[in-house]
Structures are given as C-alpha cells and as structure tokens.
Nucleic acid binder design. Structure first.
Lengths: 192, 192
DNA sequence: CTAGAAACGGAGGTATCCTCCGGTTGAGGG
DNA sequence: CCCTCAACCGGAGGATACCTCCGTTTCTAG
C-alpha cells in the first residue's frame, strides 16, 4: 500500500507523476458521471495517455477506484483549512458541508464502485473516515472557539447527519438537502 | 415480470421448459462456487445448451440471477412441507434451519450478485421474504400444535436469528453455526 | 402424418481486458 | 552542454466475453 505516494526508494520521475495526476483526474471525472462501468481505455484516453501507462500505475481496476476515492477525500478535507482561512468559522463549516453533500452527490456513481472496494479493504473505510472526522473537527473547534457554535457540537454527530443528507435521492433532492443543511447549521449555532 | 413462470398465452413447449430448468440448475451451481462473475457462456455450456438459448430465456444477466435465486428459495421453502411429512415437527424445524444455514452459506457467492438485483427490484426482497416466513410459520405452527415448541414462538424472530447465524464467517463457522442453531432450538422448545 | 410455429444453436461483429516490448524521455554525471 | 541509461511511455494484438441474428431442428395441434 502507498506504493507510489511515498518515497519508495527514489522519488518518482516527473512525467510519471504528471501522468498519475492526469489519470486520477480523468478517473474521478468519468466514474462520477458514468458509474464504475467505464472502460479503462476511455479513462486513459481522457487522460491523454496510453492504456499501458494506466495499467502500470494502477494494475487493477480496483486500485484505480481506490486511488481516485482517496484523492477526492484528500482534496475535500484539504478544503476545510482553506475555507477557514477566508471565512468566519461557522460560514466555513456551512460551506464545507454544502460542498461535501454536493460533491459526493454529483459523484454518486462512485458509491457502488466503492462498495466492492471497501469490502476487500476494510482499512480504507476507517482511514478515510478518520480523515473526514479530522476535517470536521477542525471546523467545529474553530467555531466553538470563536463562540459561533455551541460548545458541545460533536464532529461524529455532524458526519452522521451529513451521511443521512447525502443519502437523499429522487427529484428535488438538491433543495431538500439545502434546507436540511441549514437546519443542521441552526442546530449547531450557539444559543438555540 | 413472471413472464414464463405463469401461463402467458399458451403453455411453454416441453423442450423449452426442460432447457429452462437445466439453465437454472447450471446457474445456481456456478454462481454458488464462482461468484457472480461467471461468463454466461460457461453457464450455457454447463447446461448443455447454446448461448442463444440462454439469452432467449434470460435476456439479461440480472434476469438469470433473479430467477436462480427465486428457484432456490422455492425449493428451500418446499422442503419445509416435506420434512414435516417425515419427521416430528421440532425435528423438522431443526433440520430445515440447518439446511437454510448450510445451503445459503455454501452459495454465498450469490450474495453480492443479489445486492445489485435487489437494489433495482425491491419487490423481490419482500416477496421471497414472505415465502420464507411462510415456510417457517408452517413448521413453527406444527410444533406449537403438538406441544413440542413454546406457544409464543414467532416466525419473524426465528428468521431474524437465522439471518444472524447466516452472517457468520471465518474459520470454524460451521461448528459455531451448529452450536448456535441448537441453542436456538433449545430456546424454542416448550418449557425452558 | 404433416404443416407451421416455436425453439435451438453457434458463428461472428463488437467491446473490453491486459500484456508485452520497441521506442522515447527525464535526470544525474562528465 | 552533452551523454548515457534506467525509467517510463504507448499502443498493437491475443484472449475473453457480450449479445444478435438467422438457418436449422423439434415440437404439437389438427
């Protein structure tokens, strides 16, 4: 695991890294819209690399799905700090949650892909969950510190609620998700 | 739905029915050992029919999986009456449960196959569940009538317990399942 | 027994998978 | 700046699976 994310022996060659990024971007893009049953050839093409390159970086379809998922989670969690840098904490939290919901809702195609991956790699779930909890914690703590959020706000609860909102389907889910999010924010704010 | 199980307009031709059975048998067999990712060509071959025949009977892979599942459930539920015919009720129930667990455990490969089917056809779940509850009810009622089972034994509870036992995995699950089953039976017998 | 409707079988066009290896490119040393 | 070679790239191609289509065979009603 973490075969080419950390320094294995020497650093990766620059072009290899570039291609890896391109592949990841193409994969998240295609998985998002077309579900998991996209041909790997299509991914390679959209990335602008040969199919051989794809297979070198990600020997199996599973490896690609997992890596794409990881990179999504990472970027989402990274956004928490950014948002905190340019917004008051409670606004940052609200925006982040909205992003969380919209983001993964748009990419619902990945959900079924993930089920099979998670089944064969249970670390993945725990690990990424921890990352997300970390991001929420960062936001919540900042809000509590500046007094805009109630002091007993719990990151686990927030994630739980987000998970529920994220499961929304059917027509008009976007409006409903928005309403539920603002409801959740109201609940989190200081002084009910 | 139920396209060729009930009389559509006229009865099915004899050879068509035979081939249907052969395909179903081959499918349950292969799905059981190899999971859902078996080539449909292999199913047709094991059934001793051409690939065209398979596709005529089951236009999609899903249709085949669903039909195979239905036929399994049916045979399992049919066994309840048979067992009752040749055993005292409480023994019949015990044997039936043991069959339920062993049976579907051997065919765990079908579980993942079913997940996708159930997702797109939620009737299937409710329907087969009703069938199974019916079979359990038959056995339990007989046991209550002859006094070997406690009068408040509830089919839903029994299914629930079976479900839990059925989830067992890992080494030695067979022994454990056996112990749990006899534990369950003790609980169901009259006069704790 | 016969006619025609129903079912059969499998060849074959298409899509995807994945490997393999000749060619290309980046990075450190001269 | 150039050279060298190890690392990396690309895509042709063999293998497998999907699914359709239609000539042939088999059933069954009359």
């Amino acid at each position: 695991m973490g075969k080419q994310t950390a320094t294995p022996d020497r650093a990766m060659r620059a072009d290899a890294l570039r291609n890896r990024e391109k592949l990841l971007a193409a994969a998240t893009d295609l998985f998002a819209s077309g579900g998991t049953d996209v041909s790997l050839e299509a991914v390679a093409e959209q990335a602008g690399v040969g199919i051989g390159t794809l297979y070198r970086h990600f020997p199996t379809r599973e490896a690609l799905v997992e890596a794409a998922y990881r990179s999504e989670v990472e970027s989402l969690c990274g956004a928490a700090a950014d948002l905190l840098g340019s917004n008051p904490p409670s606004v940052a939290l609200e925006r982040w949650m909205s992003r969380f919901v919209g983001y993964s809702a748009a990419k619902r195609g990945m959900v079924d892909a993930l089920q099979s991956v998670v089944a064969s790699n249970s670390d993945l779930f725990a690990e990424t969950r921890r990352q997300i909890i970390g991001a929420i914690d960062l936001l919540v703590k900042a809000g509590v510190a500046d007094g805009s959020l109630r002091p007993d706000a719990d990151p686990e609860d927030v994630l739980h609620a987000l998970g529920a909102i994220w499961l929304l389907k059917g027509p008009g889910w976007e409006k409903r998700a928005e309403r539920l999010l603002s409801l959740l924010m109201d609940g989190l704010r200081y002084g009910t």
